[in-house]
Simulated scan of single mutants.
Amino acid sequence: MDLRPHFDELERFADGQMTPAEQEAFELRLEQDEALAEAHAAYEQLTADLRWAAGHNTLRLRLQALDERMNERGDALARTERLTQQRQRRWMTLGVLGAVLLVAMGVGAWYFSRPGPTRPARSWEAYYQPDPGPAVTTGLLHSRPLLSEALDQYQSGHYPAALHSLGRVSAASVGADTLLYLRGLMLLRQGQGTAAQLYLRRVSEDTVAGELARRARYHLGMAHWQANELAPARAALLAVAADSLNLYRTSAQRAIAAGVLEGK
């Protein structure tokens, strides 16, 4: 496979240097242009081989840096928890004193100004049940450090960095369907519902993917909803709501029952 005709744009895509519009156009070409798709697969394999050839010392340094960052995060969480407990104790004292006054004010406000019927929220985020992905365990850190880095960034809300890190993960070590699914999740959380559909649809249509395909169908419906494509969003979520084996069945049923996908 001669990578030279596509090398520059493959490198820009892998490094996350494309604009959202360029990335979306490139991903659509991947689906339609067989030569480009083969070049992309060859490029992914080449970069994976180069990473392996870099040696165990680089891997050790990455693991050490990741372990240090995990330790720092644990210390920060512990400090935050202590500060939270201190604030809770202070506010508890004030809360007891103000409880009676608040109740009286609440009763008065309700009596003189009763609220009308509330309308259901229409935003997809109000009904979305996120998938945090696999937990970053010690075993995963040592067996798949690049995947662990991508998951850690995704679970921390750093979606562009997570997408960049995921692009360095080899499909041979994780599985092509898993990589497609995770990329779709990250794009969805980044607000790129249209781009996320490309990856989630491929997994949802895979008859071998099983549970992963069921998960992908739910998130595909939410990606349509995020892109304001209400008709396909409702069709996808109706299928999820009717699937007794789908983990997201209840969430899909709640969105369908609210009637928010019937049109504005």
Results as ranks from 00 to 15, higher is better:
179 L>G: 00
129 Q>S: 13
112 F>Q: 05
158 H>W: 07
167 G>Y: 14
195 A>M: 15
195 A>F: 12
157 G>K: 06
190 Q>T: 02
204 S>H: 05
140 L>H: 01
180 L>Y: 06
186 M>Q: 03
189 R>Y: 11
130 P>H: 03
144 R>A: 14
172 A>Q: 14
191 G>V: 02
126 A>G: 09
189 R>Q: 12
179 L>E: 02
132 P>W: 15
161 A>S: 15
193 G>K: 01
141 L>K: 08
141 L>V: 09
172 A>D: 14
124 W>C: 00
123 S>A: 15
113 S>W: 04
203 V>Q: 12
190 Q>G: 07
201 R>Y: 03
118 T>V: 15
121 A>G: 08
134 P>R: 11
144 R>D: 00
139 G>S: 14
105 M>P: 00
184 G>T: 09
156 S>Y: 12
142 H>E: 07
137 T>M: 05
119 R>P: 06
141 L>F: 01
128 Y>C: 07
167 G>T: 13
145 P>I: 03
114 R>M: 13
113 S>V: 06
107 V>Y: 08
192 Q>H: 09
109 A>M: 08
145 P>F: 12
182 L>Y: 02
198 L>V: 06
177 D>M: 07
128 Y>P: 10
159 Y>V: 04
165 S>F: 02
167 G>W: 10
150 A>S: 10
141 L>M: 11
105 M>A: 10
155 Q>H: 03
152 D>L: 03
134 P>Q: 11
127 Y>C: 01
117 P>S: 15
115 P>K: 08
152 D>M: 06
166 L>D: 08
133 G>T: 00
149 E>I: 08
148 S>E: 08
139 G>H: 13
158 H>Y: 10
123 S>D: 11
196 A>R: 02
203 V>S: 04
121 A>S: 06
195 A>R: 06
177 D>L: 07
131 D>N: 04
124 W>Q: 09
156 S>M: 13
181 Y>R: 11
199 Y>F: 15
117 P>H: 15
191 G>N: 04
139 G>N: 12
201 R>A: 12
120 P>N: 13
192 Q>W: 07
198 L>R: 14
185 L>G: 00
124 W>D: 02
161 A>V: 00
115 P>E: 14
189 R>M: 12
114 R>C: 04
189 R>P: 07
205 E>P: 14
202 R>W: 14
121 A>W: 00
108 G>C: 04
126 A>P: 01
123 S>L: 07
116 G>P: 05
201 R>V: 01
109 A>D: 06
155 Q>V: 05
126 A>N: 02
134 P>G: 07
125 E>C: 01
173 S>R: 08
184 G>R: 05
181 Y>P: 08
186 M>R: 13
158 H>M: 12
145 P>T: 05
116 G>V: 09
123 S>V: 03
181 Y>H: 14
170 S>R: 01
112 F>H: 04
160 P>A: 00
183 R>Y: 02
